[in-house]
Simulated assay, not measured.
Amino acid sequence: MSKAFLAQVIQETLETTGVAANRAATDVIDAIVKELKKEGGFTLPSFGTFTVKKTKARKALNPRTGEPVKVKAGKTVRFKASPSLKKAV
């Protein structure tokens, strides 16, 4: 799924222009990102839950050279599908 796909669905459903649909898709994505930053999670009923998880600093290997590399601690987004989504798929 891409932003273009979301914009197309919005455009067809609301019978609006492509520019307005693209703006709406952008606003939805921005709202989700803002909520993830603010609350650390976001739930779409009947779809699933997005949560922000902290990752620890660790050592990894550069696949090209095989040299050890330090990876900084950070954050990542995890997704857990809802039971209704799992059943539908």
Score class of each variant (00 low, 15 high):
V28F: 03
L36G: 05
S82M: 03
G40Q: 09
T51N: 03
T49I: 15
G66W: 00
R23K: 06
T43C: 09
T16P: 04
V52A: 07
Q8H: 05
A81N: 00
D27L: 15
A73V: 02
T65C: 04
S2D: 02
Q8S: 05
A60P: 00
P45S: 14
A25K: 01
E15P: 13
R58S: 07
F42S: 02
L61I: 15
K87L: 13
G74S: 01
S46H: 11
E67M: 06
T26W: 10
K87Y: 09
G48R: 01
T17S: 13
N62E: 00
T17Y: 10
P63S: 00
A81V: 12
A7Y: 04
N62G: 01
K54T: 12
D27Y: 15
S82Y: 06
V89G: 06
T76W: 04
E15H: 15
K3M: 08
V69Q: 01
V71Y: 00
A24T: 02
S84K: 13
G40V: 08
P68K: 00
S46E: 14
A88W: 09
T17L: 04
G18V: 05
K56D: 09
V33N: 08
K3A: 05
T51W: 01
F50C: 09
T55F: 06
V69A: 00
K37M: 03
L6D: 04
P83N: 13
A60H: 01
R78H: 14
L36C: 08
K87V: 10
P83W: 09
I29R: 09
P45F: 04
A4P: 03
K38Y: 13
F5V: 15
S46Q: 06
